[in-house]
Nucleic acid binder design. Structure first.
Length: 107
DNA sequence: ACTTTGACTTGCA
DNA sequence: ATGCAAGCCAAAG
């Protein structure tokens, strides 16, 4: 595990309830602007291992779509949790304009 | 040790 | 405005 993973986990864990963020924002926050895929890998590792304390369901792609919902226990749990936190949906994507959350850039 | 793929994004045609 | 291609880091084959 690289230190980047820790940064990613730290940021994802810092996402407030009822808010969502995108892979690109997290990637930019850890200093790797084009490393959005790395974020996905980190979350996949988190989901596959026992790092469930990280709210990976609050991480969506830049369109607000729940791209990683199929990696959860069930494809519905992700939306269920987001809706339970008060996140509004526009069709199959979250209302980014209303719930987007931008992490602080880490040096 | 090298190649391929993946929970993505951005840029050019 | 839509479609295809390239780029980036890390892990699995």
């Amino acid at each position: 595990m690289s230190d980047r993973y820790e940064l990613i986990y730290n940021i994802v864990r810092a996402i407030p309830s009822g808010r969502v963020t995108t892979y690109g924002h997290i990637a930019a926050a850890i200093g790797v602007r084009s490393g959005a895929r790395l974020v996905g890998w980190a979350l996949n590792a988190v989901a596959h291992q026992d790092r469930i304390d990280i709210p990976c369901h609050r991480v969506v792609n830049r369109l607000g779509e729940l791209s990683g919902k199929m990696h959860f226990e069930t494809p519905f749990v992700m939306r269920e949790r987001l809706e339970a936190e008060g996140v509004g949906f526009l069709g199959d994507a979250v209302d980014l304009d209303q719930h987007i959350w931008v992490p602080e850039i880490a040096p």
